[in-house]
Nucleic acid binder design. Structure first.
Ligand SMILES: [Mn+2]
Ligand SMILES: [Mn+2]
Ligand SMILES: [Zn+2]
Ligand SMILES: [Zn+2]
Lengths: 146, 146
DNA sequence: ATAATAATGAAATTGATTATCATTATCATA
DNA sequence: TATGATAATGATAATCAATTTCATTATTAT
Protein backbone atom coordinates (compact mmCIF):
# COMPACT_ATOMS: atom_id res chain seq x y z
CA UNK A 1 0.00 0.00 0.00
CA UNK A 2 1.25 3.38 -0.97
CA UNK A 3 0.57 6.58 0.90
CA UNK A 4 1.58 5.07 4.21
CA UNK A 5 1.64 8.44 5.91
CA UNK A 6 -1.85 9.42 4.89
CA UNK A 7 -3.21 6.04 5.82
CA UNK A 8 -1.67 6.39 9.28
CA UNK A 9 -3.20 9.81 9.74
CA UNK A 10 -6.61 8.58 8.69
CA UNK A 11 -6.35 5.55 10.94
CA UNK A 12 -5.35 7.72 13.86
CA UNK A 13 -8.17 10.14 13.28
CA UNK A 14 -10.68 7.33 13.08
CA UNK A 15 -9.30 5.60 16.16
CA UNK A 16 -9.37 8.79 18.17
CA UNK A 17 -13.03 9.14 17.34
CA UNK A 18 -13.95 5.53 17.87
CA UNK A 19 -14.48 4.88 14.20
CA UNK A 20 -13.23 2.06 12.08
CA UNK A 21 -11.15 1.94 8.96
CA UNK A 22 -13.58 0.00 6.85
CA UNK A 23 -13.16 -1.29 3.35
CA UNK A 24 -15.26 1.46 1.72
CA UNK A 25 -13.27 4.10 3.58
CA UNK A 26 -10.00 2.53 2.52
CA UNK A 27 -11.13 2.43 -1.10
CA UNK A 28 -12.28 6.04 -1.01
CA UNK A 29 -9.00 7.19 0.55
CA UNK A 30 -7.08 5.29 -2.10
CA UNK A 31 -9.09 6.79 -4.95
CA UNK A 32 -8.82 10.25 -3.45
CA UNK A 33 -5.06 10.01 -3.11
CA UNK A 34 -4.63 8.65 -6.61
CA UNK A 35 -6.58 11.48 -8.19
CA UNK A 36 -4.73 14.61 -9.21
CA UNK A 37 -6.02 18.10 -8.67
CA UNK A 38 -9.47 19.22 -7.76
CA UNK A 39 -12.15 16.59 -7.74
CA UNK A 40 -15.90 16.53 -7.39
CA UNK A 41 -17.96 13.98 -5.54
CA UNK A 42 -19.33 12.57 -8.76
CA UNK A 43 -15.84 11.97 -10.09
CA UNK A 44 -14.84 10.16 -6.92
CA UNK A 45 -18.05 8.18 -7.07
CA UNK A 46 -17.35 7.02 -10.61
CA UNK A 47 -13.81 6.03 -9.74
CA UNK A 48 -14.70 4.11 -6.61
CA UNK A 49 -17.27 2.22 -8.64
CA UNK A 50 -14.44 0.77 -10.70
CA UNK A 51 -12.93 -0.67 -7.55
CA UNK A 52 -16.15 -1.56 -5.77
CA UNK A 53 -19.44 -0.85 -7.47
CA UNK A 54 -21.41 -1.28 -4.27
CA UNK A 55 -20.09 1.85 -2.59
CA UNK A 56 -22.83 4.44 -2.49
CA UNK A 57 -22.72 8.17 -2.99
CA UNK A 58 -23.68 8.79 0.61
CA UNK A 59 -20.63 6.93 1.80
CA UNK A 60 -18.43 9.08 -0.41
CA UNK A 61 -19.90 12.25 1.06
CA UNK A 62 -19.40 10.89 4.55
CA UNK A 63 -15.87 9.69 3.92
CA UNK A 64 -14.81 12.96 2.31
CA UNK A 65 -15.99 14.82 5.37
CA UNK A 66 -13.84 12.53 7.48
CA UNK A 67 -10.85 13.16 5.23
CA UNK A 68 -11.36 16.88 5.67
CA UNK A 69 -11.66 16.52 9.43
CA UNK A 70 -8.52 14.42 9.57
CA UNK A 71 -6.56 17.07 7.70
CA UNK A 72 -5.94 15.11 4.51
CA UNK A 73 -8.41 16.91 2.30
CA UNK A 74 -9.60 20.42 1.79
CA UNK A 75 -12.97 21.46 0.53
CA UNK A 76 -13.02 24.19 -2.10
CA UNK A 77 -15.95 25.97 -3.62
CA UNK A 78 -14.36 27.04 -6.88
CA UNK A 79 -17.47 26.24 -8.83
CA UNK A 80 -20.74 27.79 -7.88
CA UNK A 81 -23.16 25.34 -6.27
CA UNK A 82 -20.77 22.47 -6.11
CA UNK A 83 -17.94 21.63 -3.80
CA UNK A 84 -14.72 20.03 -4.80
CA UNK A 85 -11.88 18.50 -2.86
CA UNK A 86 -8.13 18.43 -3.09
CA UNK A 87 -5.25 16.95 -1.17
CA UNK A 88 -3.62 19.12 1.41
CA UNK A 89 -1.37 16.80 3.35
CA UNK A 90 2.25 17.54 2.50
CA UNK A 91 1.26 20.40 0.23
CA UNK A 92 1.59 24.13 0.74
CA UNK A 93 -1.31 26.51 1.10
CA UNK A 94 -2.35 28.15 -2.13
CA UNK A 95 -5.18 30.00 -3.76
CA UNK A 96 -6.74 29.60 -7.18
CA UNK A 97 -7.04 31.18 -10.58
CA UNK A 98 -9.99 29.92 -12.60
CA UNK A 99 -10.58 30.36 -16.31
CA UNK A 100 -14.23 31.24 -16.76
CA UNK A 101 -14.24 29.81 -20.28
CA UNK A 102 -12.55 26.42 -20.06
CA UNK A 103 -12.70 26.05 -16.26
CA UNK A 104 -8.97 25.42 -16.05
CA UNK A 105 -7.68 25.87 -12.53
CA UNK A 106 -4.22 27.16 -11.70
CA UNK A 107 -2.74 27.51 -8.27
CA UNK A 108 -0.71 30.33 -6.83
CA UNK A 109 0.70 31.52 -3.57
CA UNK A 110 1.43 35.13 -2.80
CA UNK A 111 3.05 35.68 0.60
CA UNK A 112 2.48 39.43 0.43
CA UNK A 113 -1.23 39.02 -0.06
CA UNK A 114 -1.34 36.61 2.86
CA UNK A 115 0.54 39.14 4.97
CA UNK A 116 -1.89 41.90 4.08
CA UNK A 117 -4.82 39.68 4.82
CA UNK A 118 -3.43 39.15 8.31
CA UNK A 119 -2.95 42.86 8.75
CA UNK A 120 -6.45 43.61 7.57
CA UNK A 121 -7.95 41.15 10.03
CA UNK A 122 -5.90 42.63 12.85
CA UNK A 123 -6.97 46.14 11.92
CA UNK A 124 -10.60 45.03 12.18
CA UNK A 125 -9.85 43.20 15.41
CA UNK A 126 -10.73 39.84 13.93
CA UNK A 127 -8.87 36.67 14.79
CA UNK A 128 -8.24 35.34 11.32
CA UNK A 129 -9.17 31.70 10.82
CA UNK A 130 -9.10 31.22 7.07
CA UNK A 131 -9.77 32.88 3.79
CA UNK A 132 -11.20 32.28 0.37
CA UNK A 133 -9.48 33.90 -2.54
CA UNK A 134 -10.14 33.00 -6.12
CA UNK A 135 -9.26 35.01 -9.19
CA UNK A 136 -11.49 34.64 -12.23
CA UNK A 137 -10.24 35.39 -15.69
CA UNK A 138 -9.64 34.10 -19.17
CA UNK A 139 -6.59 31.96 -19.75
CA UNK A 140 -4.19 32.58 -22.60
CA UNK A 141 -5.46 29.62 -24.55
CA UNK A 142 -9.06 30.78 -24.39
CA UNK A 143 -8.04 34.35 -25.16
CA UNK A 144 -6.40 33.31 -28.42
CA UNK A 145 -9.11 30.97 -29.62
CA UNK A 146 -11.78 33.64 -29.45
CA UNK B 1 -39.38 58.84 -6.11
CA UNK B 2 -35.92 58.71 -4.64
CA UNK B 3 -32.95 57.05 -6.26
CA UNK B 4 -33.53 58.78 -9.58
CA UNK B 5 -30.16 57.71 -10.89
CA UNK B 6 -30.65 54.04 -10.19
CA UNK B 7 -34.14 54.10 -11.63
CA UNK B 8 -32.77 55.65 -14.82
CA UNK B 9 -30.11 53.00 -15.11
CA UNK B 10 -32.63 50.23 -14.62
CA UNK B 11 -35.03 51.78 -17.13
CA UNK B 12 -32.26 52.10 -19.67
CA UNK B 13 -31.13 48.55 -19.17
CA UNK B 14 -34.64 47.24 -19.58
CA UNK B 15 -35.32 49.38 -22.63
CA UNK B 16 -32.10 48.28 -24.29
CA UNK B 17 -33.20 44.72 -23.87
CA UNK B 18 -36.81 45.21 -24.87
CA UNK B 19 -38.11 44.69 -21.38
CA UNK B 20 -40.58 46.73 -19.41
CA UNK B 21 -40.35 48.49 -16.11
CA UNK B 22 -43.31 46.82 -14.49
CA UNK B 23 -44.82 47.45 -11.10
CA UNK B 24 -43.26 44.35 -9.49
CA UNK B 25 -39.84 45.33 -10.82
CA UNK B 26 -40.26 48.87 -9.55
CA UNK B 27 -41.25 47.62 -6.11
CA UNK B 28 -38.34 45.22 -5.95
CA UNK B 29 -35.89 47.92 -6.98
CA UNK B 30 -37.30 50.22 -4.34
CA UNK B 31 -37.05 47.60 -1.60
CA UNK B 32 -33.55 46.65 -2.70
CA UNK B 33 -32.36 50.25 -2.61
CA UNK B 34 -33.94 50.91 0.76
CA UNK B 35 -32.25 47.93 2.37
CA UNK B 36 -28.83 48.39 3.92
CA UNK B 37 -26.01 45.93 3.59
CA UNK B 38 -26.10 42.38 2.38
CA UNK B 39 -29.50 40.91 1.78
CA UNK B 40 -30.86 37.49 0.98
CA UNK B 41 -33.71 36.68 -1.37
CA UNK B 42 -35.94 35.69 1.52
CA UNK B 43 -35.42 39.05 3.19
CA UNK B 44 -36.28 40.89 -0.01
CA UNK B 45 -39.30 38.66 -0.44
CA UNK B 46 -40.60 39.48 3.04
CA UNK B 47 -40.10 43.19 2.49
CA UNK B 48 -41.76 43.30 -0.90
CA UNK B 49 -44.73 41.49 0.60
CA UNK B 50 -45.32 44.51 2.81
CA UNK B 51 -45.66 46.66 -0.28
CA UNK B 52 -47.39 44.14 -2.51
CA UNK B 53 -48.16 40.72 -1.15
CA UNK B 54 -48.83 39.29 -4.57
CA UNK B 55 -45.24 39.43 -5.75
CA UNK B 56 -43.81 35.93 -5.89
CA UNK B 57 -40.40 34.62 -5.04
CA UNK B 58 -39.67 33.76 -8.66
CA UNK B 59 -40.15 37.37 -9.64
CA UNK B 60 -37.67 38.44 -6.99
CA UNK B 61 -35.09 36.00 -8.29
CA UNK B 62 -35.69 37.22 -11.82
CA UNK B 63 -35.60 40.90 -10.90
CA UNK B 64 -32.43 40.54 -8.85
CA UNK B 65 -30.71 38.98 -11.82
CA UNK B 66 -31.75 41.98 -13.87
CA UNK B 67 -30.40 44.33 -11.23
CA UNK B 68 -27.09 42.50 -11.34
CA UNK B 69 -27.00 42.64 -15.12
CA UNK B 70 -27.78 46.35 -15.11
CA UNK B 71 -24.91 47.02 -12.74
CA UNK B 72 -26.94 48.09 -9.73
CA UNK B 73 -26.47 44.98 -7.65
CA UNK B 74 -23.74 42.53 -6.94
CA UNK B 75 -24.18 38.93 -6.00
CA UNK B 76 -22.05 37.64 -3.14
CA UNK B 77 -21.69 34.15 -1.78
CA UNK B 78 -20.55 35.00 1.71
CA UNK B 79 -22.68 32.31 3.24
CA UNK B 80 -22.30 28.76 2.09
CA UNK B 81 -25.21 27.53 -0.01
CA UNK B 82 -26.99 30.82 -0.28
CA UNK B 83 -26.38 33.93 -2.30
CA UNK B 84 -26.86 37.44 -1.09
CA UNK B 85 -26.97 40.79 -2.82
CA UNK B 86 -25.71 44.25 -2.14
CA UNK B 87 -25.79 47.63 -3.83
CA UNK B 88 -22.82 48.52 -5.96
CA UNK B 89 -23.88 51.61 -7.84
CA UNK B 90 -22.05 54.62 -6.49
CA UNK B 91 -20.08 52.48 -4.09
CA UNK B 92 -16.45 51.46 -4.17
CA UNK B 93 -15.27 47.91 -4.66
CA UNK B 94 -14.54 46.08 -1.46
CA UNK B 95 -14.07 42.62 -0.03
CA UNK B 96 -15.44 41.06 3.12
CA UNK B 97 -14.50 39.93 6.58
CA UNK B 98 -16.99 37.53 8.11
CA UNK B 99 -17.26 36.51 11.75
CA UNK B 100 -17.82 32.77 11.84
CA UNK B 101 -19.58 33.03 15.20
CA UNK B 102 -22.07 35.88 14.88
CA UNK B 103 -22.00 36.19 11.08
CA UNK B 104 -21.21 39.89 11.27
CA UNK B 105 -19.89 41.19 7.96
CA UNK B 106 -17.34 43.96 7.68
CA UNK B 107 -16.03 45.46 4.48
CA UNK B 108 -12.51 46.39 3.56
CA UNK B 109 -10.50 47.51 0.61
CA UNK B 110 -6.80 46.89 0.26
CA UNK B 111 -5.28 48.46 -2.86
CA UNK B 112 -2.06 46.52 -2.46
CA UNK B 113 -3.85 43.21 -2.46
CA UNK B 114 -5.76 44.23 -5.56
CA UNK B 115 -2.49 45.21 -7.20
CA UNK B 116 -0.92 41.85 -6.40
CA UNK B 117 -3.96 40.03 -7.68
CA UNK B 118 -3.52 41.81 -10.99
CA UNK B 119 0.15 40.92 -11.06
CA UNK B 120 -0.59 37.30 -10.27
CA UNK B 121 -3.12 37.06 -13.08
CA UNK B 122 -0.67 38.63 -15.50
CA UNK B 123 2.07 36.24 -14.43
CA UNK B 124 -0.23 33.34 -15.23
CA UNK B 125 -1.27 35.01 -18.49
CA UNK B 126 -4.86 35.33 -17.40
CA UNK B 127 -7.00 38.31 -18.27
CA UNK B 128 -8.42 39.08 -14.86
CA UNK B 129 -12.16 39.55 -14.78
CA UNK B 130 -13.06 39.47 -11.10
CA UNK B 131 -12.14 37.94 -7.80
CA UNK B 132 -13.65 36.56 -4.65
CA UNK B 133 -11.87 37.30 -1.43
CA UNK B 134 -13.40 36.74 1.96
CA UNK B 135 -11.60 36.54 5.27
CA UNK B 136 -13.13 34.39 7.97
CA UNK B 137 -12.42 34.97 11.61
CA UNK B 138 -13.81 35.75 15.02
CA UNK B 139 -14.75 39.32 15.77
CA UNK B 140 -13.65 41.10 18.92
CA UNK B 141 -17.09 40.87 20.45
CA UNK B 142 -17.32 37.13 19.96
CA UNK B 143 -13.74 36.68 21.15
CA UNK B 144 -14.52 38.35 24.47
CA UNK B 145 -17.82 36.63 25.14
CA UNK B 146 -16.29 33.18 24.90
C1' DA C 1 -59.66 48.69 -28.96
C1' DT C 2 -56.67 44.97 -30.68
C1' DA C 3 -53.07 42.00 -31.54
C1' DA C 4 -48.34 40.78 -30.49
C1' DT C 5 -45.36 40.16 -27.03
C1' DA C 6 -43.48 40.28 -22.32
C1' DA C 7 -44.09 39.41 -17.42
C1' DT C 8 -46.12 37.30 -13.63
C1' DG C 9 -46.99 33.96 -9.93
C1' DA C 10 -48.24 29.29 -8.59
C1' DA C 11 -46.61 25.15 -8.82
C1' DA C 12 -43.49 21.67 -10.45
C1' DT C 13 -38.74 20.55 -11.22
C1' DT C 14 -33.91 20.38 -10.58
C1' DG C 15 -29.64 19.18 -8.51
C1' DA C 16 -26.52 18.96 -4.76
C1' DT C 17 -26.37 17.58 -0.24
C1' DT C 18 -28.14 15.51 4.13
C1' DA C 19 -31.03 12.52 6.94
C1' DT C 20 -33.37 8.24 7.78
C1' DC C 21 -33.46 3.57 8.61
C1' DA C 22 -33.33 -1.31 7.97
C1' DT C 23 -29.50 -4.23 7.19
C1' DT C 24 -24.71 -5.52 7.53
C1' DA C 25 -20.03 -5.24 9.35
C1' DT C 26 -16.79 -4.61 13.06
C1' DC C 27 -14.58 -5.65 17.27
C1' DA C 28 -13.90 -6.25 22.23
C1' DT C 29 -14.78 -9.75 25.25
C1' DA C 30 -16.49 -13.91 27.07
C1' DT D 1 -14.97 -18.47 17.70
C1' DA D 2 -19.48 -17.06 19.20
C1' DT D 3 -21.92 -13.03 20.98
C1' DG D 4 -23.69 -8.71 21.70
C1' DA D 5 -22.98 -3.71 21.57
C1' DT D 6 -22.07 -0.40 18.48
C1' DA D 7 -20.68 1.69 14.11
C1' DA D 8 -21.12 1.84 9.08
C1' DT D 9 -23.38 1.14 4.90
C1' DG D 10 -26.35 1.99 0.94
C1' DA D 11 -30.95 2.67 -0.85
C1' DT D 12 -34.10 5.87 -0.55
C1' DA D 13 -36.48 9.91 1.09
C1' DA D 14 -36.12 14.56 2.49
C1' DT D 15 -34.21 19.30 2.13
C1' DC D 16 -33.56 23.53 0.27
C1' DA D 17 -32.11 27.17 -2.81
C1' DA D 18 -32.78 28.15 -7.33
C1' DT D 19 -34.80 27.49 -11.96
C1' DT D 20 -38.33 26.19 -15.19
C1' DT D 21 -42.93 25.66 -16.83
C1' DC D 22 -47.17 27.31 -18.11
C1' DA D 23 -51.65 29.31 -17.95
C1' DT D 24 -53.02 33.93 -16.97
C1' DT D 25 -52.40 38.86 -16.89
C1' DA D 26 -49.98 43.28 -18.32
C1' DT D 27 -47.87 46.14 -21.50
C1' DT D 28 -47.10 48.47 -25.70
C1' DA D 29 -47.27 49.64 -30.54
C1' DT D 30 -50.55 50.04 -33.99
MN1 LIG E 1 -5.72 23.68 -5.32
MN1 LIG F 1 -20.30 44.37 0.89
ZN1 LIG G 1 -9.38 28.84 -20.43
ZN1 LIG H 1 -18.73 37.86 15.84
Amino acid sequence: MEYVQELKIFENYLAENNMHLTRPRKVILQVFLQTEGHMEIEELFEKTKMVDKNIGRATIYRAMNLLVESGLAQENSLIEDKKCFERVYGRKHHDHLVCTRCKKIEEFHHPMIERFQEKTAKKHQFTLISHHMTLFGVCQNCNCNM
